[in-house]
Design a protein around this nucleic acid. Sequence first.
DNA 1: GATGAATGAGTATTCATTCAT
DNA 2: GATGAATGAATACTCATTCAT
Lengths: 185, 185, 185, 185
Amino acid sequence: MKDKRAAILEATLNLISERGFYNTPMSLIAKTSGVSTGIIYHYFANKEELINELYKEIKLKILKAMLADYSEGEPLKERFLEIWYNYIRYSLQNPTKGLFLDQFENSPLVDHVQEDFAEDVAPFFHLFEQGIREGVFVSLPPLVLFELSFAPAAALVKRHIAGFVEMDDELMQAVANACWKAITG
Amino acid sequence: MKDKRAAILEATLNLISERGFYNTPMSLIAKTSGVSTGIIYHYFANKEELINELYKEIKLKILKAMLADYSEGEPLKERFLEIWYNYIRYSLQNPTKGLFLDQFENSPLVDHVQEDFAEDVAPFFHLFEQGIREGVFVSLPPLVLFELSFAPAAALVKRHIAGFVEMDDELMQAVANACWKAITG
Amino acid sequence: MKDKRAAILEATLNLISERGFYNTPMSLIAKTSGVSTGIIYHYFANKEELINELYKEIKLKILKAMLADYSEGEPLKERFLEIWYNYIRYSLQNPTKGLFLDQFENSPLVDHVQEDFAEDVAPFFHLFEQGIREGVFVSLPPLVLFELSFAPAAALVKRHIAGFVEMDDELMQAVANACWKAITG
Amino acid sequence: MKDKRAAILEATLNLISERGFYNTPMSLIAKTSGVSTGIIYHYFANKEELINELYKEIKLKILKAMLADYSEGEPLKERFLEIWYNYIRYSLQNPTKGLFLDQFENSPLVDHVQEDFAEDVAPFFHLFEQGIREGVFVSLPPLVLFELSFAPAAALVKRHIAGFVEMDDELMQAVANACWKAITG
DNA sequence: GATGAATGAGTATTCATTCAT
DNA sequence: GATGAATGAATACTCATTCAT
């Protein structure tokens, strides 16, 4: 059954997001997901692969969530804001996923397999490139525009989860506008 | 001698920034800093305290670097940009410190002792509050303005270190402008 | 298998009785009992629990040995002497157990869980209480009668093991009589 | 100054009696006695010698206390009881010394240097031998008479300290009589 | 005599991974 | 597929002892 695989991944996410990688032994993952230690090695070659697999899954989910209902037919600003709001909403609703990604991506031992997501990330770059071509966005590398747009969003979601700001609709809108302003000439 | 304490902290920073917390055994810290394991426990109660101490030291250094030559007499924009450039320059010149902070601040086991730096962080908040009062900045919580200003900077430094963007003077200026635009009405 | 657990306990008893607690590393227990260090922690939470468990086991065995074939139907003196001889015989035949108990019970770090053996110790107290009621024993707290009866026995077994006295049948009988005299009016 | 040596011995006694040998690091002894670690090694070759020295000192003190005012001129029973009461009183008033001795004498690593006290112990053996010669005591090895007399006393002092019996004057007298009865024909 | 920084071997415990059942 | 007992290398931390000052 894929049930077990899924249970393992879910337990791993929950445990790691609140205990960290190294504080999450395989035995605890096994107990939490209701399986034996041994069977984890049937689904994943080792702990590293389990975590990489989890990373890919979460990364894809968040990218898909950002691009839900995305259509290149709509006007640029609407598309940008839609993506932006999707990101914030998904992050706020899935705090464990964000915590996991933060840990993973800030771990020095992990090589970031950027290429794996090339296809999934393409729409973002198309969007930024189109904006530059049309003279709406400042002429900077797409990755730079990406960070100007989403780094503050990510940071503020963390601050919200930590209880330092209250991310309500009004604030979200204000921040969205600020990000839009940052990248538009 | 404070020599040994300093050597331990330095080795810890270098090792952790490239191997991570849990991949940096005390024995390796000892060997790298040229001391015995035992003496580490003379200067620090345990590994956790060693790392917390390192965190405080680095955090203070970076805050001090950002506020070097800072004077409330200068115009708002100049002060903002000075801090902003100081931050980028220091981060680019001290990549290990940034990597260490990222790891530390994204570790779920660590309670971030925000208060410890209250005094050192105050000038930032004064700056943002003044900007809001004078109608130059959008009226948002100072912490939000802070993240709008610095989150992209931090993200792009990471991208630079990872080799995905080339942070030259021109790009720095463009990003600085974008951040300034983000927070100004 | 309970085999391993038993092997661990046996090795622990032998090692501790001749080397002491702190001179008996877990690694030596593992090697002596032919298991890995790790598996010890499968059967016992930690070294302390292993030793407490061993204590309970030994204490129970010695109490059971003292009360072997004990029947409240027999005359008081016979019952007393039977217990007394059982104790001496068992102690002489199991010198390591005695050495272990002496160490354990004289360790200042251990709380003696008297209650755990309440049930197993009850027959002794019934015996002393009956003797007092019937006017055979001096009217003293049962625990005092107990020590008057068994403390010399225990001390002399130690002396025998250390080679300072030779505990033959004749001496045993003489000491048994002396103890009986001590507690009878 | 002998002050330091004495301070070290006193701290060692107090610490060991409540924490045990192995839980009493030299550094703690140093701190408690208000000296440096290094200086301990000026007065004692090493930890073992320190503890042996302490043992001898305490053992002698307790033997001297038992024989205070002892005079071979007095009648046998008076002499016996005087020693017996002296022992109990001293033990009750110096519980740390008793705890230390119990630990030391039940440690399997220690060879009991019986001979060291031969001279100090002689009066006891003279007493028992005289009693046997005069037909007052049962004809048993003096060491056996010794244990019949003092083992219950020692055990009951422990029980008193542990709070299981209340060793008041009345009980002391009763136990003294019982011990006397044990060894007299 | 006196200090306490320094050493490094030694210890309890953890945990990824394997494998007999 | 599934279990969980078993392994043993790895790790944080301790502490008797030394020695430069």
